[in-house]
Amino acid sequence: MNGMSPIVQTVARFVKVFILLYGIYLTLTGHLTPGGGFAGGVVIASLYILLTLAYGKKFSLKYFPRKLAGSLDSVGALIFLVVAVLGFYFGGIFFANFLQKNYPGAEFSLLSAGTIPINNIAICIKVASSLFLVFIIMAVARIIDKKDGSKDYKQDQEKE
């Protein structure tokens, strides 16, 4: 895979910002509208996949190496877990929403759901990087010696 035709490359260059923004939008407003960390993460991962298809795997691995993706994968999950444990610490109960609800914003505003947006961001990081990891490992299976990369599929992404 060495990239596709200039038409695809140009379109991908124009579209990439919008896809990224849409993914971030879905993630950040996940507590208000349909969407959330998983959907946003999938959208962002699809951006990576689009860029890989358009520019080739060398390009995407240069900007987003496998080690980084693997680390972000774990970091996302750990953030999620830390938020849960902080709820234990501050609220006395695992997964307790220890930030004040409806603060600082009013109901139905962006900052109004306590820890849920943080969880959404963590899920987004995890889903985006692990989906990208799965794709890139399958795509370059013959080049890089792959070691069961797709195994760390943890479903705790969805415990919200």
Partner: peptide
Amino acid sequence: VLTSIVIGLGVTALAIAICI
């Protein structure tokens, strides 16, 4: 369904990796 799709994704990815 969302959760079960994620789980299905994990199983499918692992299955395909084993197939390769």
